[in-house]
Design a protein around this nucleic acid. Sequence first.
DNA 1: TTTACTGTACCGGCTGGACGGTCTTGTCAA
DNA 2: TTGACAAGACCGTCCAGCCGGTACAGTAAA
Lengths: 177, 177
Amino acid sequence: MRVPRANSREKILAAAADVAREAGPGSLSLEAVASRAGVSKGGLLYNFPTKAKLMQGLVESYLNDFQKALETRATEAGHESVLSAYIKLSADDCERPKPSASWMFSAIAEDPDFLTPIKAFKRQLFERLKGETDDLGSLLVCFLAIEGMRSMNLFDSDVLSEDERKLLVSSLLKIAG
Amino acid sequence: MRVPRANSREKILAAAADVAREAGPGSLSLEAVASRAGVSKGGLLYNFPTKAKLMQGLVESYLNDFQKALETRATEAGHESVLSAYIKLSADDCERPKPSASWMFSAIAEDPDFLTPIKAFKRQLFERLKGETDDLGSLLVCFLAIEGMRSMNLFDSDVLSEDERKLLVSSLLKIAG
DNA sequence: TTTACTGTACCGGCTGGACGGTCTTGTCAA
DNA sequence: TTGACAAGACCGTCCAGCCGGTACAGTAAA
């Protein structure tokens, strides 16, 4: 009963993210991921020889998707600044019911070093934003507020209401100019 | 509240936080904590009958300490607003080399519900701040930026430099008024 | 077109080791 | 002596990674 031979990798990645979100990072076993992906454990291990490799795959695909989405918004959406694009992208991400990065806790549990590429990515993004403005203070506030929003989303925090988040985003866009 | 030969509880709590920070949440075993605390596994289990209880202890003592620190700053430091006190307290927390809450990942891995009291605490704090200002937009930006700062600290992110963080804090204090 | 061979994709039982929690025994302060 | 508490051996469970198998596709000589 094997047909979709090629895209197992992506199915597995998606399954891993789902399991991590729904069952919590403590319950992210290879078996759970495999069964969720409709794949046997052996099949999973074929695609990702190690749990660490699976986490690495999650990190990489996340960073890729994010980069692509940001680029799309920054270029195609007219004369927007990158910062505005980043704000809106993050707002949309947080709007969605499923936190897109809740697998991160599992990755950290596996090995804290998986954060390194993410940190590097963020630093790079920040540098890029720095080149776009001359008010470093405002940029810092915006950048960190977005970080806060993403972090709350990550922690599945319903601390802020819908309206509050909208007000926040519009305030940020105003600061961003 | 009986006084034991030594105050093992606090030693154990501190040890658990240390192990979680240094070895990563995936390596927070009871044995590791016990050995770090200079206590046997049996002794640990005597104080915290279960790993979940240990995590709960971490959450509670963290929230207690935080509340106390905030109150101290807000009252004794003159006519400061609570928001300013919160900003400064968070800045100081992030200044310290050891993230004070890196155990949180371990708690989440054990059971995501451990976040609930923390979320409630934050919401409560936010409500309190809301009563203090009439500019909700600015408050949101400040509050979330602090959240972002704390989250970066939590993830042990050296994304921001020393100077950038200082500039951020002063910008926040300016917004807070 | 058949057969034989090779490589790819996937399966699922197994195991060694680690971990959480229990239990028995030891110890020290009052 | 007694009982609160610490010690660490021990046990059951769980899981990552391994391994021997299966199914199928492509190739190519016969």
